[in-house]
Amino acid sequence: MSIPSTRINIPIRTDPTSNLGSFELIETTLREGEQFANAFFTTEKKIEIAKALDDFGVDYIELTSPVASEQSRLDCEAICKLNLNAKILTHIRCHMDDARVAVETGVDGVNVVIGTSQFLRQYSHGKDMNYIAQSAVEVIEFVKSKGIEIRFSSEDSFRSDIVDLLNIYRTVDKIGVNRVGIADTVGCANPRQVYDLVKTLKSVVSCDIECHFHIDTGCAIANAYTALEAGAKLIDVSVLGIGERNGITPLGALMARMITADRDYVLSKYKLHKLRDLERLIADSVQVNIPFNNPDPTEERSE
């Protein structure tokens, strides 16, 4: 005797502050991706990539700091002149010299970062939290005076003291940053830690929250999804996940995850049929093969 199959639908419980159906992408192949071993993008290639990303529909394109080199500054200016739909950002240190150069390139916004963990404060810049707060206020107020967007992010957030983090985020939120950033710089965070930190941060700031996850321990996609579920608004991604060490949250893989959460939203914003060409463009540019098990958000899934 055959037993009839029964379809069981298990509802997904989401937080009321969830942004699973209203997230935005900060695409950083032209910043984080430039730290990949084989990433030597010419100006022409950067323009080609920027146009392809814009055509796909990303909300923001992040570029290497214009103080990294004279060529980086010129490339930044060239991409700003393309008049793309995506907003153009550049990523700088929390330092006035960097900020002065960045605002002159024509970018729509500046992403400011400084290390807040004990490790980076001791071995990177050697500054205490009071110095960090003073520098952040000075840079933020200057960038805001130029009428462009500003994000402040801690670096190595998940190994930073929670009291230090919340204090600096409160400070920059009060002076009007557009968003604050959480960075899992060494890829050590797990989804439960991400949920707890985003929820806690959400309770003390009124601005948007951006998250940057490295994939060292394999959790970047799960962490990105969890961050949105907890109330973060923006996720940093790169094509094929290229970046420092073994990279960050991959654009295509995150799309495959998000289309299961809100298919209509994803399809209304992003041209998924352009994704494979975009991945081939980057794979060819950095001389890697597209992984055989690369997630594909365009695949039909049985109901």
Rank of each mutant, 00 (worst) to 15 (best):
R7A: 15
I8C: 07
P11F: 09
R13K: 15
T14D: 06
S18T: 15
E32R: 05
G33R: 08
G33K: 00
E34V: 09
F40I: 09
T42D: 06
E44P: 08
A50C: 12
A52I: 07
D54P: 06
V58F: 02
V58Q: 03
Y60L: 05
L63D: 03
V67Y: 00
E70W: 04
R73L: 12
D75C: 03
D75S: 11
D75L: 08
C80K: 02
N83T: 11
L84H: 03
N85R: 14
K87H: 06
R93Y: 06
H95K: 11
V103F: 02
V107P: 07
D108E: 14
I114L: 14
G115K: 02
T116V: 05
Q118N: 15
Q118P: 06
S124Q: 12
Y131N: 11
S135H: 14
E138T: 14
E138K: 15
S145K: 11
G147T: 01
I148L: 12
I148H: 11
E149H: 03
R151E: 15
R159E: 07
S160T: 13
D161Q: 03
V163Y: 12
G176N: 12
R179Q: 14
V180Q: 01
A183C: 14
A183D: 07
D184V: 09
A189K: 01
P191L: 04
K199M: 13
S203L: 00
S206V: 01
C211V: 08
H214G: 06
T217I: 07
C219T: 11
A224P: 05
L228Y: 06
A230C: 00
G243H: 12
L251D: 12
A253R: 00
A256Q: 03
M258E: 04
I259D: 02
I259C: 03
A261C: 07
V266E: 07
L275N: 00
R276P: 04
L278I: 07
I282D: 07
Q287T: 12
F292T: 12
P295H: 06
D296E: 02
E300W: 07
R301C: 03
